[in-house]
Each structure stands twice: as structure tokens, then as C-alpha cells.
Design a protein around this nucleic acid. Sequence first.
DNA 1: TTAATGCTTCCAGCAACTGGAAGGTCAAGG
DNA 2: CCTTGACCTTCCAGTTGCTGGAAGCATTAA
Lengths: 136, 136
Amino acid sequence: MRIGDVARRSGLPAKTIRYYEDIGLMSSGRDANGYRRFSEADLHKLAFLGRARSLGFSIEDCRELLRLYDDHTRASGDVKRIAEGHLARIDAKLEELGEMRRTLAHLVSACAGDDRPDCPILSDLAAAPAPPAGRE
Amino acid sequence: MRIGDVARRSGLPAKTIRYYEDIGLMSSGRDANGYRRFSEADLHKLAFLGRARSLGFSIEDCRELLRLYDDHTRASGDVKRIAEGHLARIDAKLEELGEMRRTLAHLVSACAGDDRPDCPILSDLAAAPAPPAGRE
DNA sequence: TTAATGCTTCCAGCAACTGGAAGGTCAAGG
DNA sequence: CCTTGACCTTCCAGTTGCTGGAAGCATTAA
């Protein structure tokens, strides 16, 4: 297959596939004319990457996951560790976003949203005490 | 005040303050020696920015919020619109992350995490149907 | 012959900073 | 007078994960 075919079949843009090859996440063969040539196994790998990325794994996580996937003597514990680390990051992000949402929703509901200038949102941004110290 | 003082009092790194000036989010005066000089009003503005950013508003949102803050003839509706738009983006992100978390937590709990190679996480990444089509 | 696809590479840019290098400025201490 | 140290300055590069676009070659059909 050529890159357009794998793009269609994997759901990944051709640009992204080239990018993945660029950063050494995967590799492909080449035809005489310089075009990339992909095997079913390559397609499989790309689909794997697409799935991992859609679960939010970082590129570096994906690199390691792919390595473990190829290594049939891997320990499932290694995979689980990566997934747990990622899960923890997701939870942290969820917490952070949830806190933002709480505050923001409160402010939004307090604002009349009319033509007058009085606005609790601006007042709060202007007057709240020190920034919540979070966000590191 | 000089930049170190506003940095301490606003909680923003000096680097960030320079960056904000760079992109025209705020401005400051200069001493004869070229050092930036900040007034209490400048500090106030930076604190405002810090708060808005900590609520997740984008830089462009912040620019607009600051403009509205300075404009005493603003309509609170304009502020509310920005906040509501941001809230919607947060909700979308929360949904997306929640979905990731669900899937991932499921996979993690199904994985033994021991020395053996069998791993439902890898199996799923390898075998799941087309990528969930999300993430645009 | 030409036009339409599809492929190639390379460069730039997005958000919002952050790190580091190279160097100027000022007050205190010896 | 000189040095040390804590500031400050600018500029350049890197982060994450792509994405857009330009310039140009390959292949096929009309």
C-alpha cells in the first residue's frame, strides 16, 4: 500500500504518518520511485498508534507501548505501569478542569449578561485573593 | 516596582511577565537604565491575568477580558459570552477526558500487571475496531 | 500534451510559555 | 578600586503533536 491507502484504512492523516516515521515511531519501505510502501503489519502498527493516541497516551508512551507490543517476552506489569501513570495524569487533569468549571460556572450564573457594565466575573478576576497557587 | 517585585507579588514568573509584554497583553514603563518599571495598576492587571489564566482562559480571551475590564461602558453580556464559550470548551474537554478515563480504567483493571506477557491493554490497542472517530 | 492526482521534502507556525546564554547595572564589602 | 552577587536586559531555542503550504517529481487518463 501507499501512504494514501494506509491513511484511509488507519484513519490517520498522511501527514501524521510521515511525522511518525520522522520521529522514529515506525518505519516503512520505499518503492523505486521513492514512494513509501506499507505492509499490513505497518498498517496494524499505525492503527495501534491511532488507538493509543486517542486514549491520550503521549508519543513517548506510544513508543514504549509499541516496543512492548513487539516484545513477546514483555511483562504485562510494564504495560500496566504506563497505563496507570497515564490514568493518574488524566485524573489530575480532570480534577483541575473540574475545579475550573466549578468556579467558572458559579461566576457565569452570577452575571446578568445584559447591557449594563456591572459584572461579577470581572469583579472576581480583579479582586480575588492570590491566584489559587495551583497550576504547576 | 521592578519586575522581580511584581513577579513575587503577582505570583507570575518574571519570564511570563516579559512574555505578556512581548505579545502586547500589557505594557510597562522603563527606567533610565532600561529596567522595566511597574505601577500598582500594572501589578493589578498582571494579577487579573494570572487569575484569568488559572481559570483556563486563553491568552486571546484574556486580551479581550482585559479590554472589557478597562472599558467601564462595557456590557456584562460581552463578558458573559466569553466565559460561556470557555465553559463550553471545558465541558467538552471534561467529556473527552472522562471517556478516556473510563476506557483506560477498564483496561487497567483487566490487566494482571505481573511478569507474564498476556496483556489486555495491548490486546485492546491492537485489536479494537476503527479509532473512535473522536478527537477532531 | 496537458491536466489531475498523489507522492516527495522542507520550512513555518500553532499555545503559552520555559530554559539558557551573553551581557549590562547597582549596592555592599574588602 | 575591584570584586562579588543579585538583579536586570535581549535573543534564541525547545517544548507537544501535529498541520498547512510551497516547490517539485511520478503516474495515469483524456
